[in-house]
C-alpha cells in the first residue's frame, strides 16, 4: 500500500499512556542515597545491566532498599550521577578498540572535574567500574593533559612513576610472593652459606 493510500486515523492523544519517568535509588558505601533517572543510568553499562536484571517496577523502586554500590563513596558517586544526568540521552561511544584522535572536554565536564587529584582518581576508578565510556574518555584526557610541558623528572613526580630499580624490586617481591617455596629455598641457602657450607644439594 502506498503512503498516499494509507488510511488516516484520528489519534486521541489523551488516550496514549504517558510513560512515567522512573528514578532508581542508589546508596554509596558511606550510606549516602541518590535518585537517578532511568535515562541517566543508561550512560553506565554496569548499572544499566543491573537494573535491567532486577526488573524493578515503580513501586519496587520506592519500596525496596536502595541499590548498594559498595565500593564507591558518596562524594564520588555524586559526581558520577551529576555527569550521567547532564549527559542523559546522549549516544554512547562504541568501543571498537580505536583511539579517538581528538578528545574535547566539554565545559560542563571541565567544571565537574575541577577537583583535587585524589577525587579525580576515585572518579576514574568509578567510571571504569561502572563502565561509563564517555566519562572515562574525558577524565583520562584530563589526566593526559597533566603531562603537557613537563620534563621526564617532572612527569615522574606528577604521575608517581617508579624508577627502573623500583620496578625491579617490585618484580622480585611479586615473584617471591607467588612462590613461597622459592623463598624458603633461598633462605635455606643463605643460612647454609652463613654456616660455612659450600654445597647446597
Amino acid at each position: 500500500m502506498s503512503v498516499e493510500n494509507a488510511p488516516v486515523v484520528d489519534v486521541d492523544e489523551a488516550a496514549i499512556p504517558v510513560e512515567k519517568k522512573m528514578y532508581y535509588r542508589f546508596e554509596s558505601n558511606d550510606k549516602k542515597e541518590f535518585r537517578v533517572s532511568e535515562l541517566a543510568i543508561q550512560q553506565s553499562e554496569t548499572l544499566n545491566r543491573l537494573v535491567e536484571a532486577m526488573g524493578y517496577t515503580s513501586e519496587d523502586v520506592e519500596n525496596k532498599p536502595a541499590i548498594a554500590i559498595e565500593n564507591i563513596d558518596g562524594k564520588t558517586l555524586k559526581l558520577v550521577f551529576q555527569w550521567c544526568e547532564h549527559h542523559k540521552g546522549e549516544a554512547i561511544p562504541v568501543d571498537d578498540g580505536s583511539v579517538p584522535k581528538i578528545v574535547e572536554i566539554p565545559e560542563f565536564d571541565a567544571k565537574l572535574m575541577d577537583i583535587d587529584n585524589g577525587l579525580l582518581f576515585k572518579l576514574i576508578w568509578a567510571a571504569d567500574y561502572l563502565n561509563i565510556v564517555q566519562l572515562l574518555n574525558v577524565s583520562c584526557k584530563k589526566v593526559a593533559n597533566m603531562a603537557q610541558g613537563k620534563t621526564p623528572a617532572q612527569l615522574r613526580r606528577v604521575y608517581l612513576l617508579p624508577s627502573d630499580e623500583e620496578d625491579e624490586a617490585a618484580k622480585r617481591a611479586a615473584q617471591e610472593a607467588q612462590d613461597p617455596r622459592a623463598r624458603e629455598v633461598e633462605e635455606e641457602f643463605e643460612e647454609r652459606k652463613r654456616q660455612g657450607g659450600n654445597s647446597f644439594f
Binding site: 587529584n117 585524589g118 576508578w125 571504569d128 589526566v143 597533566m146 606528577v158 608517581l160
Partner: peptide, 12 residues
C-alpha cells in the same frame, strides 16, 4: 595523593 600528583600506574 597530594594536590599535584596522580598515581597513573595505580589505575587499572
Amino acid at each position: 595523593p597530594g594536590l599535584d600528583t596522580f598515581p597513573l600506574f595505580q589505575t587499572p
